[in-house]
Nucleic acid binder design. Structure first.
Length: 248
DNA sequence: GGAAGATGACAAG
DNA sequence: TTGTCCTCTTCCC
């Protein structure tokens, strides 16, 4: 695989692995590990604004700030804006993975370990869901949407949830996130709640999916019609429906 | 043309 | 809690 850094910031490391055989590419939570021959691993974390575009070959001249380009005869991948792009070894990867909680996308994930953390915590469930050492991979969109789908108020302390409630939430995450991987979109609205089914005019989303509350502050809840609320929690915008999602 | 914001995470105070 | 980093898009003049 050809490895380069048109923007330059990864250039020194790219030169070290240019031409190496790619053995595997796998994710753990929000981390991507591209494993190359010789125990060399490219570790990528997109952060808030990073993007990885994977397109068919041939690769055109790079446009914009392409920090990493991976390329073979079939396809190329351009990385922009990532918070992490570094060359690491197996021990560092093990360290990163070891700090992560359970990833709903992995078949071997153990929901009981997640429940053990949540059921003992006084922290809001909306906070726990974003904690990568509890649940790996869930971000701001899935947090808002999964809580809405289960009618759980985001500020409820983790320990006030019932076990059955959590297990339902977990299996829903497994399904929703799996679908997100397959489709490349985050669609969380059940068929019976789509604007068409509710007799409302269709709407356009700017993040590539249909959602209940995420970034819909001030708009009407798709289910009950009351205004979607928002509040900044730990520096992130939180969204929920005050009527559908009870605190108690 | 410029500001604001965005699916994140960390350090500093 | 605030500031910082990374890049691009959207919206407003």
């Amino acid at each position: 695989m050809r490895v380069s850094s048109p923007q330059g910031r990864f250039a020194a490391d790219a030169a070290l692995v240019d031409g190496a055989v790619c053995i595997a590419a796998e994710s753990a939570g929000k981390h991507l590990f591209v494993e190359l021959a010789g125990d060399r691993i490219v570790h990528v974390h997109l952060g808030l604004i990073g993007k990885l575009d994977v397109l068919p070959a041939p690769a055109p001249p790079p446009v914009g700030e392409v920090r990493l380009r991976l390329q073979n005869d079939n396809a190329y991948a351009d990385l922009r804006g990532a918070t992490q792009c570094e060359l690491i070894g197996p021990s560092r990867r093990a360290e990163i993975v070891g700090q992560l909680g359970e990833d709903p996308l992995r078949p071997d994930a153990d929901p009981d370990r997640v429940w053990a953390r949540i059921s003992r915590s006084h922290r809001p469930i909306g906070d726990l869901l974003m904690d990568q050492s509890v649940l790996a991979g869930v971000g701001n969109v899935y947090r808002a949407e999964i809580l809405f789908r289960h009618r759980i108020h985001p500020l409820r302390p983790g320990r006030t949830l019932r076990r059955g409630q959590f297990l339902a939430l977990w299996s829903d995450l497994v399904e929703l996130m799996g679908e997100g991987v397959r489709t490349g979109r985050i669609d969380t609205v059940r068929p019976e709640h789509t604007p068409e089914a509710m007799g409302r005019p269709p709407r356009k989303d700017d993040h590539g999916g249909e959602v209940y509350v995420y970034r819909r502050a001030g708009m009407a809840c798709l289910v009950c019609g009351s205004k979607v609320r928002t509040e900044v929690l730990a520096g992130r915008n939180l969204f929920w429906c005050g009527r559908c999602q009870r605190r108690g």
